[in-house]
Nucleic acid binder design. Sequence first.
DNA 1: AACGAAGTCAACCGCTAATTT
DNA 2: GAAATTAGCGGTTGACTTCGT
Length: 195
Amino acid sequence: MAPRDETKVSGNKRAVTNRGAWTAEEDRKLSEYIEVHGPKRWRNIATKAGLNRCGKSCRLRWLNYLRPNITRGNISDAEEDLILRLHKLLGNRWSLIAGRLPGRTDNEIKNYWNSHLSKKISAKEKTREVPPPPSSKRLDEAGIQELPQREEEQLATGNVIPDLDLEIDYLFDFTMEGSYGLDWVNNFLELDRNS
DNA sequence: AACGAAGTCAACCGCTAATTT
DNA sequence: GAAATTAGCGGTTGACTTCGT
């Protein structure tokens, strides 16, 4: 049985809502209601569909599992390659990445990244370990290596920008492109230049 | 067979942006 | 224009499964 939680509603009243895994019955109720009324006003959906859930939970369930055209199961090699390249370009912008993978959800891609790809990458980097040429970094008088300016800025602001210079040839090598159009990448870069 | 560690993934949380009242 | 509500995002948690000993 799903755990329950008290959710604040207007005033001092509290409503007890279900939490945890969704049941088949809850899925059915949610799907049927959305089929008729559409996926909007999630708090209304939760109450009017007779679900003891918060609107947020209903929305998540619909987007990640119940909506049509969801692709479930193994991520193909082409998809994995695209995720890697998009992540290099966009960072942890999971919803944007998911938007380029038909049928995949941001949650699924985020999970796949955290459980598969991040490890693959760190393993790759460990084996690579190519030291930079001595002239590429200068030493200050105390003998401490200075960070490149962008790295310093990122550390200062906390905004880590994906390293677009790293493996740039690989990133923009579209010769192995499959069915995924990447015109949007060019548009994105054009917008970025203009801004 | 039993147990703990590691991996996986669905769901929740906290926050911000956008929209509505 | 301000306040309230809703939608959406990324990070995190925790239950469950698989693997190794």
